[in-house]
Amino acid sequence: MRVWIVVALCLAGHAMAAPVSLLCVCVCVCVCVCETTVGINPVQIETGEFDEAIQIEEDFPAENPCLNHHCKKGKVCEIDEENNSPMCVCQDPSSCPAAAGEFEHVCGTDNKTYDSSCHFFATKCALEGTKKGHKLHLDYLGACKFLETCVDAELSEFPLRMRDWLKNVLVTLFERDEDNNLLTEKQKVRVQKIYENVKRLQSGEHSLDLLAHDFEKNYNMYIFPVHWQFGELDQHPADGFLTHTELAPLRAPLIPMEHCTTRFFDECDADSDKYIALEEWAACFGIKEEDIDKDMVL
C-alpha cells in the first residue's frame, strides 16, 4: 500500500500582478490511499497538471533477507550486518536435530557413521577447501558396515538387474501417473509401448538367464529407461555429465543392498575423469553407440 500526497499551490486571480504580501495562497492537500499492482502507477499525472507531486512511502518492517535465500546442504543463511545482505555459512553440526533413530544414519566415504545427513554435510562444509573435504562424500544410507568385495562375475550381472529395475520403475510411474506429475507427456508416449509389452515379463524376481534373454530379444524396450535415468540424475547442473554428488540419490540407497554398486559406477567412468558422460553411462548398461540419443534425455 502507498500513500500519495499531492500539494498544489493555487495562486488566486491576478496574483502575479499583486504585491507579494497580498498573494492569496491556497494549499490543497489530497491524500490518496490505493492498492497497487506491479507495473501500474497508482496516480496518473498529466504533465503540467500539478506544480509538484510528492510520493511518500509508509515504513514497513524490512523483510528478512534470508527468507528466500537458498544455501546448499551443510550451510545456513546468516545476515551480513554491514550491508544487510544474506550469506551462507557452514552449519555447526551440533545445531543439527538429533537423529530420530538409526534409520537416519549415513555412511561417509571416510567409512565413518554420521548421525544424519545434516551432521554429515555440516562436517563436510567445515572441511571445505581441504584435501580431506574434497574427497569426502556421502557413500550410502545407513550405518557403515562391511561390504563384500565385488568380483568380476557379480559385476557382469549388475547391469542385468539394474536395467530391469529401471524399466519397472518407469512402468510403475506410468501406471500411477493420473495427474501428469510423475512423467511428462513425451515420457508417457515413450513408456506406453514399454508398458504394453512388459506384461509378458511380470515384475518380480527373475533368473539372470531370463533377464539376459529378455534384453537380447527386447533390446529396444530398455533404451529409453537408461536414457531417462541419466536425465533424472543430471540436474545440478544439467550439463551432460554425472558427478559423484548427482549419482548419490541412486547410489546411496543401492549400496547396502547391492555391494557391486560402487565398483559398477567407478568403472562406468571409463576415462577416470570423475565425470560420467552419457556415452559412458549407456555403454555401462549395454546400449549400443548408434542408439545413444541426447534427445531422449528429457
Rank of each mutant, 00 (worst) to 15 (best):
D269K: 09
D239Y: 02
I255W: 03
R176A: 10
Y222R: 04
M296P: 03
D179H: 13
I45N: 08
L23N: 09
C24R: 14
D80G: 06
I223E: 00
G204M: 00
G204V: 00
I5F: 08
V6F: 04
A15I: 05
K145H: 06
D164T: 10
D110C: 07
E35W: 08
Y114W: 07
D164M: 11
E185D: 12
L170R: 07
K73C: 10
G101F: 04
H69Y: 15
D80H: 09
W281C: 05
N218Y: 07
L67D: 14
A122I: 00
E57S: 15
G74M: 01
S272V: 13
P159T: 01
E128R: 12
E258A: 10
L182M: 08
T47M: 14
W4T: 13
E290K: 14
A98L: 08
C125G: 02
A252N: 14
L160R: 01
L22H: 11
C284S: 13
P159F: 04
L278D: 02
K193S: 12
G129K: 06
P256Y: 00
K186L: 12
I40F: 13
V297Q: 03
L155E: 07
D295T: 14
E246W: 03
R200T: 11
T36Y: 13
P237H: 06
F230R: 00
N64D: 15
D271T: 07
M87Q: 14
A100P: 05
T172S: 13
M221E: 15
E81G: 04
K75D: 03
F50K: 10
Q187P: 02
V106G: 06
H105G: 08
F224E: 05
Q192A: 13
L136N: 04
K199A: 08
F120K: 07
E267T: 08
A100V: 09
R163W: 03
I255L: 13
L208P: 08
N168A: 08
K124G: 00
N197V: 02
T243D: 00
A252Y: 02
S203K: 12
F146V: 15
I276G: 00
I54W: 09
P19F: 11
K132R: 14
E78S: 12
H236K: 15
T47K: 15
A98Y: 04
A126F: 00
A270C: 07
S21G: 15
N197Y: 05
T243Q: 01
T245V: 11
S117A: 15
F264D: 03
E205Y: 09
A248D: 07
E57G: 13
K167A: 11
C24W: 13
E102I: 12
G48L: 01
A122H: 00
C144L: 02
F60S: 14
I276V: 09
C71R: 07
G142T: 03
I5T: 09
F285R: 01
C66G: 06
E185G: 10
T36I: 09
V169N: 13
K167D: 09
H259Y: 14
R263E: 06
E178T: 13
I40E: 15
D239K: 08
N181A: 10
L155H: 07
D139H: 12
A62E: 13
T262F: 02
Q187F: 05
E82H: 10
C10R: 12
F120E: 03
C90V: 00
M257A: 12
H137M: 05
V29N: 07
K145D: 03
Q192I: 07
